[in-house]
């Protein structure tokens, strides 16, 4: 409970970005309907709400899987064979980057530097970092995400 004091925002939370992040967490993505509802609640134009939702790469206006895998493609990871990791993930999941598995379990995305360059190649699954990744470890890591 103690965490709540800092994690919840100050009373006047009319903050669009916080609400978008919360909504995405709850609904998995930001549908036109939820964006329209937010616009109404905040008395903003839908265009402006859509503008914020499409600016940030962690927000999505398209449906995502329950777990989002973000593979770092920036230089330190790239030169530690991120491409091999991407290929292996695509093969294991049977999808290409930018796609979601048919069962809705995983989405696979590429992302820019996640600040885990000392553990390259690294990926984020939801909020968790998995570094020093090897192809053999991938199935076991994925198992933890149902």
């Amino acid at each position: 409970m103690a965490e709540n004091t800092t994690i919840t925002q100050s009373k006047e939370t009319k903050d669009l970005l916080i609400l978008l992040a919360q909504t995405q967490k709850k609904c998995g993505f930001l549908s036109e309907e939820t964006l329209a509802n937010l616009a109404r609640t905040l008395d903003m134009s839908l265009s402006d709400v859509y503008g914020v939702a499409t600016f940030y790469s962690f927000l999505s206006t398209k449906p995502l899987g329950r777990h989002v895998i973000r593979v770092c493609k920036s230089l330190p990871c790239h030169y530690k064979d991120a491409a091999v990791i991407i290929e292996s993930l695509e093969k294991t999941l049977g999808i290409k980057t930018g796609e979601t598995t048919p069962d809705g379990r995983f989405s696979l995305e590429l992302t820019n530097c996640i600040g885990a360059c000392d553990k390259a190649p690294a990926i984020l699954i939801n909020d968790d970092v998995h570094g020093d990744l090897t192809v053999d470890r991938i199935p076991q890591i994925l198992q933890a995400y149902k």
Binding site: M44, S45, L46, S47, D48, Y50, G51, T54, F55
Partner: peptide, 9 residues
């Protein structure tokens, strides 16, 4: 009227 907005980046 706030019809238009900037989107994407």
């Amino acid at each position: 009227k706030n019809v238009l907005g900037m989107a994407y980046r």
